[in-house]
Every structure is written in C-alpha cells, then in structure tokens.
C-alpha cells in the first residue's frame, strides 16, 4: 500500500473558484416543506389529492350546479318520473320518489365528508389532549387514563353506538358523537407514544428549565413535533368514519331523509340493485373513490412524513 506523504502543496490557499464549492447552494428547507416536496414526487398520492379536492368542490357546489343546469334539487319529488335512467334532465337518473340523483349524490358526498371530517376533528381534539396528558405527566395519571382507554377499547363499539343512536334522535350530530365515543382512543395512544419519546429531548428539558408551563410546552414544543403521525392518523380517521356512517345507514340508523349520505343512498338503492342499477352505481363509485383517494393519499403522506422511508 502506498503511503501518502504530506507535500507543501497540500497547504496552499484555496483559490476563489474552489471556495465556491463550500457554499450551500440549496437553501435550507423546513421539515414540512421537505415532506411536501417528497409528497409531490408521489404521483398516485398527488392524483388522489386532486381528486379529493375535486370531490369536495363538487360536493360544495353540487346543489347549485344541479339547480343551474337542470333545475333540480335534492328534495323535490316527482311521482310521475320515479326510477328514471340517467338523462339530460337527470344526469344520474332519479330515485324511487322521482328525486334527482345528481343533486342527492352530491349532497350525500357532502354529508359523508362532513361526518368524516367532524369525526376526525373530535378525535383530534380529544385524542391530542388525552394523549398529551398521558404522555407528558406519565406515572399514575397515565396509568389511570390508559386503563380507561383500555376499557373503552374493549367495548363492542357497534352495540354501544346503536344504543346511543337509539337513545338520542337520529341526526348527523348523533352519528358523529357515537362514532367519537371510542374513535379518539387510537389518536390518544399515538400522541402518548410520541410525547413520551419527545419529552426527554434536550429542547424540552431546556424549556422546562426556563420555567415554561406545561400547556405551553405541550402545544409549543411537543405537539408540533408529533404532528407527522397525528396527520397520518387523521387521514385514516376520515375514511373510517365515512365507512362507519355508511355501515350505520345500512342498519337504518343513518341521517334523516330527505337529507342523504352516500351510505343511505346506497342502502336505499341496494333493494333495487338489479332493476335500477344506476341508483346504486353513482353513490357507490363516489364512496369508493373517496375512500380510495383518502387511503392512497394517507399512505403517501405517511411515506413523505417518515424520513426513514426516504430513498
């Protein structure tokens, strides 16, 4: 093996040209921006995001579109034109009472999305607070709360959800409430795990040493750093809640007609699946598409937020 011996030329000053190589060309980027850039390279996830945005937009403006172009709304009956196939007048056909399925399908999409999003928000708030408390304080508090979570988690939730909806009047509010009874636990556990890891990091210790109060530490230092897993959990909660609502609709516990969710629309249409397939087709496609996009986007987001998966 050749030995490298030091030469005087090794100690010469760098030329200006050579110095330039040391400067950082790429400006520093935050973790969030980094994740966003990584997400953008995931074609499927981005397509899903665009489709979701499209669905949300049409769900918002669906009633207006139906009214502008065909003069229909979601609740007007037309007993002379029941179960019509799709046509220029009724883009998605009509249902058993002659109501426009285009308007109803998009209203259903809107309500289903709302159920999903509100349920996710409730889970987020309750889950982060409970998980934060468990993780931050640890010890006895953690143990007691954890036990409560475990009891709730072992409930056959379906039975309790049905009981709750029967006790209260059926409405979107009731459904969201019932779904949230056990929904937040998963979030709480994830936040708890994250906080437990983070709370012994130097910057938290520093903040504590400087006398910051727990609430400030929690929301200024801990929660933002646990945001990755929290966001991923949310993207999974939304489709789960949409699914759960559809399931309740199948049991007749869905929203009150003439309002509709995708679940109630599908349930209404199943009985006539073989004779009027379009009544089931559009809501079912929309539901599956929403679920599909949330799932793919959620996967993409997890990959983007998880540096381990960085390739």
């Amino acid at each position: 093996m050749n030995e490298h011996t030091l030469q005087p030329s090794d100690f010469e000053k760098l030329s200006q040209e050579e110095k330039k190589g040391e400067t950082v060309v790429r400006e520093s980027i935050s973790a969030w921006k980094d994740a966003w850039l990584r997400l953008q390279t995931n074609r499927m996830a981005m397509i899903s995001l665009y489709i979701l945005a499209f669905i949300v937009l049409v769900a918002i403006f669906g009633q207006w579109i139906a009214h502008q172009f065909t003069g229909n709304d979601f609740s007007t009956n037309d007993l002379k034109a029941t179960n019509q196939a799709p046509s220029g007048d009724h883009w998605f056909g009509t249902d058993g009472l002659g109501r426009d399925m285009f308007a109803r399908t998009w209203m259903g999409a809107g309500i289903s999305l709302q159920v999903g999003i509100y349920a996710a928000i409730v889970d987020l708030i309750v889950g982060v607070i409970m998980g934060g408390i468990m993780g931050y304080f640890g010890g006895k508090v953690d143990e007691i709360l954890n036990r409560i979570c475990e009891i709730l988690y072992s409930i056959p939730s379906l039975l309790i959800v049905i009981l709750l909806i029967v006790v209260m009047e059926p409405s979107m509010f009731t459904i969201i409430l019932a779904l949230s009874i056990t929904g937040w636990i998963n979030m709480a556990w994830i936040v708890r795990g994250q906080i437990m890891q983070l709370k012994n990091q130097e910057y938290v210790l520093a903040a504590r040493a400087l006398g910051a109060n727990p609430v400030r530490i929690m929301f200024k230092h801990l929660v933002p750093n646990a945001m990755g897993p929290i966001i991923v959990t949310i993207t999974m909660t939304v489709p789960n809640a949409i699914f759960a609502e559809a399931f309740l609709s199948f049991l007749g516990l869905g929203v009150q007609s003439p309002a509709a969710s995708l679940g109630t629309l599908i349930n209404d249409a199943i009985k006539a699946m073989t004779v009027f397939p379009w009544r089931m087709l559009y809501p079912a496609i929309l539901l599956s598409l929403t679920m599909l996009c949330f799932n793919i986007f959620g996967d993409g987001l997890r990959d983007a937020l998880d540096p381990k998966m960085k390739k």
């Binding site: 559809a246 199948f250 539901l287 679920m291 599909l292 799932n295």
Partner: peptide, 11 residues
Amino acid sequence: AVLGVSIPSFV
C-alpha cells in the same frame, strides 16, 4: 388491496 378497504361489505 386499496379497493378492498374502499368498498363497503354491504355492497
């Protein structure tokens, strides 16, 4: 697999 978790069992 994604389709599997996207279509409700009652469909």
